[in-house]
Design a protein around this nucleic acid. Sequence first.
DNA 1: GTCTATAGGTTGATAGAC
DNA 2: GTCTATCAACCTATAGAC
Lengths: 205, 205
Amino acid sequence: MPCFFSVFLNAYFTFFMRPSRKTQIIQTAASLFCDKGYNAVSMRNLADELGIRAASLYNHISSKEEILAHVILEVAKSFSRHINQTFPKEDSALQKLENIIVMHVEITIQKTDALACMNNDWMHLDSIHRNRYIQMREDYEDKFRAIILNGMEKGEIEKRDPEIIVFSLLSTLRTLYLWYAKNRDFDENILKEEVAETLLSGIVK
Amino acid sequence: MPCFFSVFLNAYFTFFMRPSRKTQIIQTAASLFCDKGYNAVSMRNLADELGIRAASLYNHISSKEEILAHVILEVAKSFSRHINQTFPKEDSALQKLENIIVMHVEITIQKTDALACMNNDWMHLDSIHRNRYIQMREDYEDKFRAIILNGMEKGEIEKRDPEIIVFSLLSTLRTLYLWYAKNRDFDENILKEEVAETLLSGIVK
DNA sequence: GTCTATAGGTTGATAGAC
DNA sequence: GTCTATCAACCTATAGAC
């Protein structure tokens, strides 16, 4: 028989912590988009998953595209926020890269669905959201490239084609969610170390 | 005024070398699927691109899914064919990996659209084709992993988590088409060398 | 080998009752 | 905040004329 405390906690959760319907819709949509892709998920599919009718969704969101934009731009902002933080001045390029790799692993674990969605479905954003996304991604790549170039100048990183190094590192980090989806019980800290070592030992002199 | 020879050559090309309508349809479809994704391309879009009506497509193909299956399974077979070839016995694990990287770059350059399509739209294959694709991909990964493990045993490759090494290498190779699409004039041979060095120096003792 | 016409179903979204 | 009813547009695919 449940004690008073657990009943209270449950009620508290139900009334104060329960995600809003809008949040539920967005999270459920992200999960479906992740599996089948934006265009293969209908508003009826999404409503079914939530146990309501498709028309009811429009009391919480104004269009299907709005959901996509929310999912993608939220996770894109996470990356922007991190790369725009001021790294400690004394950090080497390598320390910055390690920091960035750790961040990618964390976002991969926390926002797996949204990340998949961003990678696969950004081209289905309407033109305003799409331009905003592309701008953020280009800004991110520029800052990432600057760290690599700086590391090369200081002799911390092998002097090879920086474009290929940037692409090689980012392609692995961006698609890590594919690997993580099949290895959800892998230890987070070991994953951070292993990925950092595999990616970085290659470009370190 | 065109000379007899060029008129002859043109006629020869027109009648004997022109790709069949089916081939045209498949190549055009691959290009559209690559840009927008399978579900965002309608049979009308595809027909428009070819200057005919949607109904006319069905004289050459039996369904939209058949086109997708053809595009994806053809390129999947290219990879299977290569990894199943008998490597020279005296090849080291490293030489085998270099060989595989070169092959990935070549397929990336020759079949950019189909590769994008395979990566993004395989889940829209019908169940029979999808199972065949998944089988081929798993077989490919198994053989790739075996080369890594063999290299570790022989002390050619750093002893780290083989799953993460396999994922890291394949994620870069599989998404190289994204980079290549924006750098089409990059020299093929330099690309092969740079990618191989960036990926391999990291795992070589 | 292409066309027109059309079947039969799904889509995203709205109006208005409760 | 959910429902039913409905719309106009679009989808894949077929039938049959030319």
